[in-house]
Amino acid sequence: MRELAVREIRRISAGFGHSVGPLLEVGQDGQVLVFVSVPDGSEFQFWDVRTGELAWRDGEGVSGCNDTALVRLPDGGLSLAAATEDGVEWWDAFTGRHRPERAWEETTVWALSAGQLGGRPVLLGAGNDGSVYGWDGNSGAALEPPRFEAGAGSSAMAVAYVPLPSEEGVIVAGDDAGRLWRWDPVTGDLLGEPTAGPASKVRIIKALPPAVGTSLFVSSDQEGILQRWDTETGAPVGPAMETGTYVFALATAGVDGTDLLLAAGADEVVRAWDAGTGEPIGLAVQGVAVSIPARGSGATLLATSTARGEIVVYECGIRSA
């Protein structure tokens, strides 16, 4: 079995005695950044991994934090968005300046995903009312059409923008009935019938690194069962991958030529697979959440969050056992 070899390079204490959510990103100058969110929405933090220093902290609080996403802007800026019980809140990620003029408060949003539509950055949100909403990443304005409907009486629990090899991409959402929905992001048209996915709520959807000529995404349900799917057809790909625990976070990245999928959850074990084949990859790392930057140069970095409010950042690479 191949293994993901890791070397700890930084350990950060967020100042809380419970788990927090990390988002790891690499700045344009190679600066490694960690954004930390507290699940109750009481605080957001930004740390410089290189120095181990806290760059900013916002302790004003919002109405819970169900998910966070980073939206990279064409001018080199970076926005941090949080899904809350009331909607979505925004910050300038580099300065920590809260952007209350961008706040959107129509319904509870459970999950967020950043993408590119028509060459512009967008943010997508899975709404408790069964809709998937979109916002312009530059202005925060709601997109037209404003929403993608996931069916009467359902709640959209997870969302992802999944790129296609030759087209714009597909918006994928999962609901509390275990169904997967796919839409054309330009027309808003539903692509086929909703797929009967997991046997329980779809909690997370993540785009997998693009293989040659294919596009896949992965879902995680209430029981921690992961399944890969073909983005264009909605058909399952390969057998399900069982974690045996409630999964809090998924992360994907290319590491030393291997497209990697990682999961972390309630049992504080971080698990890894080859995203293309579903083959398990050995990994001796603990954590309740996991994050890998979507881009960067040099060594691949991995961040985990412990149950004691610590963020641990590793350099990692693939080796044969």
Rank of each mutant, 00 (worst) to 15 (best):
M1N: 01
M1C: 02
E8S: 11
I9H: 06
A14T: 14
F16T: 12
F16N: 10
F16C: 01
G17M: 09
V20F: 02
V20N: 04
Q28G: 15
V32K: 03
L33W: 13
V34P: 08
F35W: 14
S42L: 10
F46M: 08
T51L: 12
L54P: 06
A55F: 03
W56V: 10
D58R: 05
C65W: 00
N66E: 05
R72I: 01
G77T: 04
S79R: 15
T84A: 08
E85M: 03
W91Y: 14
D92T: 02
A93D: 14
T95G: 03
E101W: 07
T108S: 06
W110D: 02
W110T: 06
L112Q: 02
A114Q: 10
G115D: 09
L117G: 04
G125F: 13
G127K: 03
N128F: 04
G130L: 09
V132M: 13
Y133M: 10
D136H: 05
N138H: 10
A142S: 13
A142N: 06
L143W: 01
L143K: 06
P145V: 09
R147G: 11
R147M: 07
E149R: 06
G151Y: 06
G151R: 00
S154V: 05
S154H: 04
S155F: 00
A158V: 05
A160K: 11
Y161K: 00
Y161G: 07
V162N: 07
S166E: 13
S166N: 08
E167A: 15
E168K: 08
E168I: 03
E168R: 02
V170A: 06
I171E: 11
I171K: 07
D175V: 13
G178Y: 11
L180N: 04
W181T: 07
W181G: 00
D184L: 09
V186Y: 01
D189E: 15
D189S: 11
D189M: 12
L190E: 06
L190Y: 02
L191D: 08
T195A: 15
P198A: 15
A199D: 14
S200A: 06
R203S: 01
I204Q: 10
P210K: 06
A211R: 14
T214F: 04
L216S: 05
S220E: 11
Q222W: 09
Q227I: 00
R228M: 05
W229T: 07
W229L: 06
G234L: 12
P239A: 15
M241N: 05
V247K: 03
A253L: 01
G254R: 11
D256R: 08
D256S: 15
T258W: 02
L260M: 11
L261N: 05
L262A: 09
G265C: 00
V270P: 11
R271C: 02
R271A: 14
R271E: 15
G278D: 03
E279P: 03
E279W: 00
S291H: 12
I292Y: 00
P293A: 12
R295A: 15
R295L: 13
S297Y: 08
L302F: 03
T304S: 09
S305G: 11
R308T: 14
R308A: 15
E310I: 01
I311A: 11
I311F: 01
E315T: 14
E315R: 13
I318P: 10
R319Q: 12
